[in-house]
Design a binder for these strands. Structure first.
Lengths: 126, 126
DNA sequence: TTATATTTGCAACTTAGTCGCATTAATTAT
DNA sequence: ATAATTAATGCGACTAAGTTGCAAATATAA
């Protein structure tokens, strides 16, 4: 079940995502907002926003979750299916505007494809 | 630094990987071998085998690490660059013998590409 | 067979994330 | 505008994955 009430905490979380196009790790969000929102609340809001198709989760190379804004997803399904880029220097994850071709594999039923590209981002290359 | 001494614990871990072609999660390995090997030891052995190019790590859809045998990697570098398939029913991860084309992205320096395909494996489809 | 250096076990710790429950605060009804 | 309803929050305690320091054990080299 997604968001029902427009609360202060929700606004604070949404503000954070409106400040950047990059993904934000749950850990950072918890750190940044710890004086205003409780950890559990942040986790719950992120879950709900994901249910609503507002955010999508990405698992980074170290297994830690990050969230980014969706561009064309709805409450019904996540249609966003793009690769993500994680920088080895700064750790930031960004969505890439490239479409991924979903391969067909004999004997397997393919559902979703997660592509995480590792390297150096434009910021860190300079 | 990789493996230096051939110990009993190492043999037990290697045996586990010789029993299957699927990836094994650290968690399962720790469970299966808990009467014989300490948790820390298992984590350390897996790290070393990865350094040596014997195993490679895959982060599953839930962020939990699994390890699988490498086919053509060396101590110097992991040349294995194939997609992995994780079944939504049984959770097992398998290496796919398909090569991944590494895309070039303007302003980014691409290093590695991780492809995790989600769906139903042949076992679970029956 | 002894010396030496790697490996191991243990226990304590860290970090990410979850859960139940009482309290607070949006929203709806009056 | 106020009271009633119910979602959302805070808190603390918990789980699960993974890490670390150090003393004891055990491979290997001498």
């Amino acid at each position: 079940m997604g968001i029902v009430r427009k609360t202060q905490s929700l606004q604070l979380v949404l503000n954070a995502f409106n400040k950047t196009t990059a993904a934000i790790s749950t850990v950072d969000l918890v750190k940044d907002l710890k004086s205003e929102i409780n950890k559990s609340t942040i986790y719950r809001i992120l879950d709900k926003l994901t249910d609503d198709g507002v955010l999508h989760a990405v698992i980074g190379k170290n297994g830690v979750k990050q969230y980014a804004k969706c561009k064309s997803c709805s409450k019904k399904e996540h249609t966003d299916n793009h690769p993500h880029f994680q920088c080895n220097s700064c750790g930031k994850i960004n969505c890439l505007d490239i479409s991924v071709t979903i391969p067909q594999i004999p004997n397997y039923k393919v559902n979703t494809v997660h592509v995480l590209i590792e390297g150096e981002c434009s910021q860190c290359l300079q």
